[in-house]
């Protein structure tokens, strides 16, 4: 009985210790583990905030099967950089709804953060940000992708985004003639 009681206490102590942990462990689709500050994760991701509040965080690594290790590493890196760059008080006052929030230009560090990413890494990261409900990261990555269209013709945009042209030649010609002013190369 004495031993059992000891085990029970140890279990209780472990649970308290877990609740007190200030990091959460996330597991990528390919099984790699990443630690991120609980506070930053809860503040920057609505999905992780929900999981933390609902107690569905697994201390051996919360499975994020939709996110590969490279994208998850970037997510964690972003959370850590974000946590260090902005004081919490400023963040609380700026917590506004994403759908109606006007655009806020990326800050210098955010610009550098996405600029160093390869094309594929950027596309994976935007999907991870979307999946995790990370409004600001989605904002910054989508902004970067929209910048990739700058000054490009529809053909060049299709090439960058791997999109198949489903217009007929006649349809394209008709619209082009109507809107000739919009095309730099005409």
């Amino acid at each position: 009985m004495e031993v059992d009681k000891g085990k029970g206490e140890a279990e209780e102590t472990r649970k308290v210790a877990e609740a007190d942990r200030d990091t959460v462990t996330l597991k990528s689709s390919d099984g790699k583990l990443f630690e991120v500050s609980k506070e930053a994760a809860a503040r920057l991701s609505t999905v992780l905030a929900g999981m933390i509040a609902g107690g569905s965080i697994d201390d051996n690594g919360t499975d994020l099967k939709q996110i590969g290790s490279e994208a998850l590493e970037n997510v964690v890196d972003y959370c850590n950089k974000h946590a260090n760059s902005i004081p919490s008080a400023a963040l609380i006052s700026s917590s506004i709804s994403f759908n109606t929030a006007p655009f806020k230009e990326p800050e210098e560090w955010e610009r550098k953060f996405v600029d160093r990413l390869s094309h594929d890494a950027l596309f994976d990261l935007v999907e991870a940000a979307n999946f995790l409900g990370m409004e600001r990261l989605l904002d910054v990555t989508c902004h970067k992708i929209s910048e990739m269209m700058k000054g490009k013709s529809p053909d060049q945009i299709r090439e960058v985004f791997n999109i198949k042209n489903d217009y007929t030649k006649e349809e394209l010609e008709e619209i082009r003639q109507e809107l000739a002013w919009a095309f730099y190369d005409d």
Binding site: N130, C142, S146, P154, N165, Y167, I175, L179, A182
Partner: peptide, 29 residues
């Protein structure tokens, strides 16, 4: 390729000082 529901998030961020970019995007597909 991009997930469909991300397309509008990206097009939303085309620069407002270049409205023609919206028209060029409309001709992509």
């Amino acid at each position: 390729t991009l997930v469909d529901d991300l397309v509008d998030e990206i097009l939303l961020r085309l620069p407002p000082f270049d409205p023609a970019s919206l028209l060029r995007a409309a001709l992509v597909c």
